[in-house]
Structures are given as C-alpha cells and as structure tokens.
C-alpha cells in the first residue's frame, strides 16, 4: 500500500507542481471571448487558462479588492474602472517590451485620458453611444446635434439610456461641457436641461436600446453603435448619427491586477490577444468592435465599413471616453434620483 502511495506521489506530484507553474488566471465579462482562443493559447504556449467571468465592473472590483495575493493574472475592466483601479494601486504597470503585438492596435484608441500612454491597460473591444433615429419618421440629415432630442416634434418618442453617466454626458456635451464634468453647478445645469427632456422620454433602456426602435415605440434617442449594426439586419431604417458635440466612447481593457501570480504569463496572454487573427476571432464571436487595426482590415467589407461600429477618425477624435469622476458620482446620482422621481 505504501509503495503504491509513494509511486502515486512520485508520479503525480511533479506534474501538479508543473501544472501550477504553467497557468494563467483570467477574469473577463461573461460571453466576452471566443472559447477557441483559449484552447489555441494553451496549445501554443502550454500555459493552462483558468477562466472566470463577471457581470459588472463593480463585482469585479469588489473581488479584486478582497484578493490580496494569488489573484487573477489578467482582468478586463472598462475604461473608467482602469483609471480608478490604477489610482488605487490595484494594477501592475505593463512591460511594453513583452507586448510586441500592441503595434497592431488602432492608434486612435491609445493614450486616452483614462490611462495616459497605456501604462496599465490594453484596449480589447470598444464602441460608442450616439444618436439613433428611425429614418422612416425622422430625416437623418436634419439631426446633427444632441439638442435635436429636445425637438418638441419627437415628444413621447425619445429613448434615453437607463444609465446616469450616459444620460448626463449627453446633456453636458450639449451644453458645451465635458461629459466627465465634476463641477456640481454644471451637473445641476445638465439636470435642469434634462428636466425639460423628461416629458418627451418614452423609455429609459440601456440593456438593449435597439428593441424600442425596432418595436416602433421610439423614433429618436441614445443608442450603442453595435446595437444599430445588429438592428440593421432586421430594419435598415435605424440610422446612427455622431452628433457634432461628439459621441461617448467606451472600451474594455486588459490589465494585470496587483495580485497577479505570474507576470510573464499575464503578458503572454495579453500579447496573444493582440494578434490580428486572434482579435478577429474574438470580435466576430462577441460582436463588438475590435481595437485591433490589423484585425479590422481582415473583416468583411460590410462590417469593416459600418460607421456605427467603426467611426471615422474625425468622429472618434471629437468624442470622449468616460473617465472616473470620483466622488462627483454622488452629485450625479442625486440629480438622477430627482430626475427619475419627477
């Protein structure tokens, strides 16, 4: 019996140690990667991917906050969480020499205010929220500005996102301020402008804003670009307009949490994800825009040129990425509650 046990240990123990050595712990949004990519990575590098998922930035943040060591090697926060986490020392700086494939990325998405010089993060998938219209009812050429949502002609036919930051960013931009404003007076001004819009609003929806458009319940409103792309398969009359004040952009990013086990494996994984072929697999599987310029070129022409998904450089430059507004979020939420209870 003892002999068997020793043999057993001799046989399996080193393997166990070896296995523990060759692992990378990845923490991503659910349904946000092509599973085949994980297999390819494992096959090529011999590093086993331990994959877990989350449903919200807040849940991910809470979990990373609790894990002090032996945590995840790679996580996927949204832009404004990258900023918050780097400020709180929850991220490790990236070693660019280990990420040669970053050269494939869309340069227009790098060095944004939420992470200057991409010291901590590599953009993965991204998109925008701007104005959607039903061209059957609203002339798309006549809509150029966020202010057009206030047009009394659309009373009772307007959709807003059910998200405090998205709605206030829109109002703030229309007043000529930044969507990341922290000045309480300006947030209040945006609230007062929104109060005038509230009677026109038919529905607040940020789960799937394309649905009320497709159901003919609304004719104008805020929408994600990717949703317009999907809606067009059913109804080509849903159009996407980048307002002259600029759209709001978001990106989900790969970062290395401070509690990472193995920096080399983390970098290897991130670099692998930046390969054009791999990025193409992921963006086709998930359905959002890839930050990888080389992968974008490999997509079919219709997708590659759909302005709702891949805006012109001018529209991208005019727009703004959401940043963490710190404690000003309390002011936003206060006015959001007032707006909702009016």
């Amino acid at each position: 019996m003892k002999k068997v046990l020793v043999l057993f240990l001799a046989f399996f123990l080193p393997l166990g140690v070896f296995a523990a050595d060759r692992e990378v712990y990845v923490f991503n949004w659910s349904q946000y990667i092509d599973p085949a990519v994980l297999e390819l990575f494992q096959k090529e590098t011999g590093i086993e991917v331990k994959y877990s998922t989350f449903e919200s930035n807040e849940a991910m943040f809470a979990k990373l906050k609790i894990l002090k060591k032996n945590g995840y090697d790679v996580a996927f926060p949204s832009n404004y969480f990258v900023e918050r986490m780097s400020r709180l020392g929850m991220l490790k700086p990236l070693d660019r020499t280990k990420l040669p494939n970053m050269k494939n990325l869309n340069q227009g998405l790098l060095d944004k205010p939420y992470d200057p010089d991409n010291a901590y993060s590599v953009p993965y998938l991204w998109g925008s929220s701007a104005i959607g219209v039903n061209a059957k009812v609203v002339d798309p050429a006549a809509v150029t500005s966020w202010d057009d949502l206030w047009n009394p002609a659309y009373k009772g036919k307007v959709l807003l996102m059910d998200d405090v930051r998205d709605v206030f960013a829109m109002s703030l931009r229309s007043l000529g301020y930044s969507g990341n404003e922290t000045d309480p007076a300006r947030i209040k001004e945006a609230y007062e402008k929104l109060l005038k819009l509230k009677p026109s609003v038919k529905v607040f929806n940020s789960d799937s804003p394309k649905q009320p458009f497709l159901n003919n319940e609304v004719v104008i409103g805020q929408i994600w670009g990717g949703e317009v792309y999907q809606a067009n398969e059913e109804n080509p009359d849903i159009r996407y307009i980048y307002p002259k004040e600029g759209a709001t952009f978001w990106a989900d990013n790969m970062v290395i949490p401070a509690s990472a086990r193995n920096m080399d494996h983390a970098h290897a994984f991130i670099d692998f994800m930046c390969r054009p072929g791999i990025a193409k697999m992921n963006c086709e599987y998930v359905g959002y825009a890839t930050s990888n310029a080389k992968a974008q070129e490999m997509l079919d022409e219709k997708t590659r040129n759909h302005k709702a998904v891949y805006p012109d450089k001018a529209d991208l430059d005019r727009g703004e990425f959401q940043t963490d507004v710190g404690d000003a979020i309390m002011t936003y939420e206060k006015y959001w509650e007032l707006l909702k209870t009016q």
């Binding site: 059910d162 509230k198 609003v201 038919k202 529905v203 607040f204 929806n205 509650e337 909702k340 209870t341």
Partner: peptide, 11 residues
C-alpha cells in the same frame, strides 16, 4: 413601464 420612475429596488 420604461423605467421612467424610480422604485425601492432601483434605488
């Protein structure tokens, strides 16, 4: 209802 008002759950 279109989420135009706020309930305890939302809050």
């Amino acid at each position: 209802g279109g989420a135009r008002s706020m309930l305890i759950g939302n809050f």
